[in-house]
């Protein structure tokens, strides 16, 4: 009723006055199920953002279609600053390659990216390779022998791996699973040879010696995985594919609102408590706003389009 009253008041005054933004609750759509990586990151950020903006934030999880269901549903929202999308990059830059989606990377008003991490490829300790280079050589020497688990056909993880493999002429069998947890389970049980997924689930197993991670998909190496080579050191720094998260608004959102939100996000993402939280998941804060963010989305989209095309996955 609080909102009803506020809304009635706003109607009485006339058009909403932006100087007062935000004057009611903000609804954040998360195109992933509750409890996942994007969900926890966004919810934690939401609690900080509530304080910063002085309004409450309601979260709506709409999972499915690799994120496209939630994003498409979000497209119907009004660009009034009260509907935001907290997503990772896959639904925006990867999914449109393999599905018919009603949106493109430029169908939104970008607000800010928040954090990022790399994907990694890990093997069992007995795998005949100790470095990233040896790993790729072993795969190249045995086309079609090894299976690697990933987050789903045409998902960012698969495209990130294939982007590396295609450069080296490697053929490995992709086994799609429902998520990193499922991939990890099948990797630990020996049902697939290679773990492909985000870093944080597999991290404890590298420490216990049950997994050795030999490659990360970022250009630079990742401190938490000392054995894994960054792509730069393998001479393919341009093949970097990251897992990163962002907040978007519907196209046509007022610039004043975008600026207000970007400023609030920049502050909350770099809040020590949030940075510490990100660290436990192997993520680092990285705020990119405005046109730079739009450009980042478009570049990634174009690069992955080539990979998808080579795989014959594209629509």
């Amino acid at each position: 009723m609080k909102y009803v009253a506020l809304a009635l008041a706003a109607v009485a005054v006339g058009t909403p006055v932006l100087a007062e933004y935000p004057e009611r609750a903000i609804e954040v759509t998360i195109p992933a199920p509750a409890g996942g990586g994007t969900d926890t990151s966004a919810r934690k950020l939401g609690t900080l953002l509530e304080e910063e903006l002085g309004t409450s934030i309601a979260v709506l999880n709409v999972a499915g279609g690799g994120g496209s269901v939630g994003v498409t549903q979000f497209m119907m929202q009004k660009p009034n600053g009260y509907s935001l999308l907290a997503t990772w990059n896959s639904p925006i830059t990867t999914v449109p390659q393999v599905q018919q989606t009603a949106y493109q990377p430029d169908s939104f008003t970008p607000i800010a990216s928040t954090s990022e991490t790399a994907y990694t490829l890990c093997v069992k300790p007995e795998f005949p390779a100790e470095t990233g280079e040896e790993f790729l050589a072993e795969l190249a020497a045995n086309p079609g022998k090894y299976t690697y688990g990933n987050d789903g056909i045409g998902g960012t993880m698969q495209l990130a791996a294939e982007r590396i493999f295609q450069g080296e002429g490697i053929e490995a069998v992709a086994i799609p699973f429902g998520g990193a947890g499922e991939t990890l389970q099948n990797f630990l049980g020996g049902h697939v040879d290679i773990y492909g997924g985000s870093i944080s689930p597999v991290l404890p197993y590298t420490e216990s010696g049950e997994a050795k991670c030999l490659i990360v998909t970022s250009a630079a190496a990742v401190p938490a995985l000392p054995q894994a080579a960054g792509l730069e050191s393998l001479g393919m720094g341009d093949k970097e594919t990251l897992l990163w998260r962002m907040v978007l608004a519907p196209a046509g959102t007022d610039q004043a609102i975008v600026d207000r939100l970007a400023e609030a996000l920049e502050k909350t993402v770099n809040d020590p408590s949030y940075v510490e939280f990100l660290a436990t998941k192997g993520e680092v804060p990285n705020v990119v706003v405005g046109d730079a963010l739009a450009e980042r989305l478009q570049n990634e989209y174009d690069a992955l389009a080539i990979v998808a095309e080579n795989l014959g996955l594209n629509q």
Partner: peptide, 12 residues
């Protein structure tokens, strides 16, 4: 604090 459908004349 779940958003539920609002009357058309209020959503703006």
């Amino acid at each position: 604090e779940k958003p539920l459908p609002m009357p058309v004349w209020i959503s703006y």
